[in-house]
Every structure is written in C-alpha cells, then in structure tokens.
Write a protein that binds this DNA or RNA. Structure first.
Lengths: 260, 260
DNA sequence: CGGAAGCTTGAATATGCTCAACACGGGTGG
DNA sequence: CCACCCGTGTTGAGCATATTCAAGCTTCCG
C-alpha cells in the first residue's frame, strides 16, 4: 500500500473539467498532463503550451530511502521538482554532528545556483527520506527558460521568499526553544504539511522521519527526542501505532506546548 | 568621527571614470548619483535611465539606534535599501526570549511580501542597531517596477537565494555548535562582513552589536557570550579597546575554533 | 524464529543558564 | 573637578536541562 504522500495531490483552484479541456486543446505533453504536481509545483506558472519547453529538458530520477541525490560539496547545479516522496537537506561535519536545514515534500523545488559564471559547490547534501521521485532540469537550459518565462521566475522568487521565512522560523526554534517546544513544533509542522498535501480529513499518517532525523532537524539528540515523544504519548497529546504511524494529534494542546 | 560602515562603499567592477561619464550622459538623478550604495545594492541592476523610475518612488528615512522601522505583526509591506548603518531582524516572544534572524548592512535589501492579494503581517521586527538610513519604496509601485525590469527581479532572486543560504548556515550554528564555536563564528562573520564593505586593510572597527544582541543572534545568554569573549581575549585570539572596539582578530585561530 | 536496526529507558555528567554581586566608563550635576 | 548614576559588561556559585554512555526492548524483515 503506497504511503499517502505518494498519492495524487489534487489540483488547487481549478476543476477537473477545466484541466482536461486544457489538456485536449493545447496538447500538453503526456508526462506533464499526468503529473500529480503539475499545478501545485513551479510548473503551475506555465500554460499548456509553455510547459512543452520544460518537458523537453526534463529527466526523471528515482531514489531509494537513504540514497543521496546531491552530496555536500558536489558541483551539481541542476534544478528539480520533487514529484513524490520526501527529501532532506543536510549539512554535516566530520565529527558526526549534522543538521537538517530543510525538508522537501512533493511539489517542492530544488534550486541550483543561478548565474553563468560561478562554479559553486553544493552547500548541503540532498537525500531521499522515503522513496523519492524527482523531475530534473539541467542547469543551463533551465536558467534560459527562467529568463524566457517571467511567470516562472516570479513564482520561483515567491517560493524562495517562503523558504527564507521557514528557515528563519526554524532559527527561532533552534536558538530559543526548549526540548518539549521543539518536539511539539515538529509534530505541528508535519501534521499541517500532511494536511496541505491534499489529505484533508486524514487523521493518521506515517511520520516521514525516524527519531535520528527528527533530532537532526530540531537540534537535539535522538534520546531527548524519544523521551519527549514518550511524554507526549503519556499525556495523550499524540498517539502512535508502532513507532512511525501517527493515529492521533491534539493540535490545540501541541500548539500550547510549542511555545510563543 | 563617523563609524566606518557609514563611509562610501566604493563601486564593484566599474572605475570612477566610467561612472561619472555615465552620469553625465544619462542624467542620473542626483540622489542616486551620489548614493554610496548605487552600484552595490539592488539598484546596480538598473541603468542610469532606468534608475529614474526607482528614484521617483523613493523616500528616505533616518532612524536612531534602537528605533524600530517595522514591528513584528505590522502590516508594512514596503521595500527598502539600507544606505548606511546596521539593522537587525528580530523575532520575539512575550516571555522575553528573542532571536535575531538576520543582520542588514549597507546595500542590503528589505523585501516586503510579494503578490497583490495577501495582507500578510510582518514576520519579524526590523530595528536600527546603529544610526540607520533607509531608502524606502512603496509596495505597489515597487512591485510594478519589478515586473517592468527583469534585471531587477533577477537580482532580487539571487539575493534572496543568498539570504536563504545564510539563514541555513545559521541553523547549523544554532542547532549544533558549542558556545565557543558560536562566538568564534560570530566574530568571523562580522570581520569578513566589515572587510567586504569596502574597508580592506582596516584592522580595527567597532562591533555593530552589544553583548545582549550578540547573544540573541547566536542563541546564548549574554553571560555566556561575555565569558567566551573573555576567553578569546585571554588566549590572544581577539583584542579590544574598550568593550566594542576590535583592534585585533586572528582569523586563522578563529576559524579553528569555529568548528566544522 | 532470529537478527539487525531503530527505539526506549536509566544513571551519571557536562554545558550553558539563572540569579546575584560587582566593575567599568561615559555623562551629568553639584 | 569630583561624586554619583545608569547602562553595559564581567565574574562567581549553584542549578537545570539536555547530553553521554550503556543496557535492554520493539519492530520489522528475511
């Protein structure tokens, strides 16, 4: 049984009827027409005609859980959509410490470095957390498309600003919150993300991350994370089936415990 | 005597001669022609003719140290350049905890929320750290300019991506570094920033932040910051005149102590 | 059913925090 | 010119929170 974040994500602000008519009239490429993130991703900025340009340079890639897409320091500058699965952005040190600086869900975008001259190395690695599917666009061609399609560039700017906001929110968590607040925040974030991904009404789902990854995301040790989760379970704020499958989340109480 | 970050920042990649000729032929507005961040800021994306559009909507604003430009939760959506001084982006809580999520130096840009429909409230306050001068652009008009001048939008996108990278680097510091590493990183960051701002060879400068602000920036208490600074002084890694004026920075040793 | 990976729990420890006193320095007023 | 004051920075002692290290326990898979 596929995990729910592999399922179709639905379409925002557009009825099924209008989509299929659009497909028929403009002959959208099949890959894009059937893509579950066609309208929720960056691609949503492009019309059925324009999407051809993107489709022409796209390449699909599948990764197993744990596999890296890009390693820290690599020269990779390509762009990509996450079409299904969850990925983590990680910065690590030799001594074992590592910090997750972002999670990517379906319809999220991986942005390479812009500008033609710089051969910057990747600032963090990108690794599959669950089975991952990417739709990759080579650097040069994508950047040209970006200049040719202002709507695409504008949407990318907007998304980057959103990401910046999320990163800064996380800075507050990492710099100023207690262990309990961090864990509560994490569960709130994941719960809300899952709801956004088109599974409204879904009362249960698998956690995308294991305890070690949660720890690396919220700047704690895995033991501390485990202890806090145990506490939340004992207090009835959350409930699991096994260690990954969440079956109950009291968002109100979580918000209270999340601080601020 | 003005502090050094109030001084002219010089021009990147363009000789003085070529600038003045440009001014003469294109009749750049006086305010912009004399602006010390004309070419290092976002404005650098615009030609002498184009800069008129920006100049027409610009409004200057001066703030004393400690004064807020925007308060957390305000409806302000305006854009602005920092022309001189240093500002901090702060997120705070009722209980006294607060976290600085970014510093703005001359030529840095304050980006309001994009898109016509959302009346989002400010996610963090913006406060003057030293005497601050802003060049403010009203939201509506600036966003129109953004659409009319692709080079401006592209530069903004690039800068936003840079900011995102900085925020993520800081997440690693806040999530995984020890007190000593955090303080060492802070001094490295400030030292390098000061060098970038056109004061190469400058071996001494005033710290832009007091101990309390440093603490809020690197996620510690001011006591811990003070203790770590004392240690660095005793070890001869840094040297002060008074409590704010740095006269010596051993960047190599700092890098060693910064971890990673 | 067995083995491995991931998770939980416990006890001891360390790192940074809290609270509190004191020092320094620049400005003001007697 | 000195005394005082206030904001800011330093130092100390005790404490709390999260870490470390270690053992045992589930859960998932073969």
């Amino acid at each position: 049984m596929p995990r729910f974040w592999h399922r179709s994500l639905g379409v925002t602000g557009m009825s099924d009827a209008s989509i299929s008519s659009q497909i028929r009239t403009a002959q959208e490429p099949e890959l894009c027409a059937n893509c579950n993130i066609r309208h929720s991703s960056l691609c949503g900025a492009l019309s059925s005609e324009e999407i051809n340009d993107l489709n022409n340079i796209a390449r699909r890639k599948t990764l197993d859980p744990g596999q890296p897409h890009v390693m820290e320091g690599d020269a990779s500058r390509d762009f990509a959509n996450v079409t299904s699965g969850v990925a983590k952005l990680v910065r690590g040190a030799e001594d074992g410490r590592s910090q997750i600086v972002g999670l990517l869900f379906p319809s999220d975008f991986i942005c390479g470095s812009l500008g033609t001259s710089k051969p910057k190395s990747a600032p963090h690695s990108i690794e599959a957390v669950s089975a991952l599917e990417l739709c990759i666009f080579p650097h040069m061609q994508f950047e040209e498309l970006l200049h040719d399609h202002p709507s695409l560039e504008f949407k990318l700017l907007n998304r980057t600003l959103d990401e910046l906001q999320i990163a800064r929110d996380w800075m507050v968590l990492l710099g100023r919150k207690t262990a309990e607040e961090r864990v509560a925040n994490f569960f709130l974030y994941v719960t809300q993300k899952m709801a956004t991904l088109g599974c409204q009404g879904q009362t249960s789902f698998d956690l995308p991350l294991g305890r070690a990854d949660i720890a690396d995301y919220i700047g704690l040790t895995l033991e501390t994370v485990s202890r806090q989760i145990t506490r939340l379970k004992k207090d009835g704020v959350i409930a699991f089936e096994g260690t990954k499958h969440l079956v109950h989340v009291d968002e109100e109480e979580l918000t209270r415990r999340a601080g601020f």
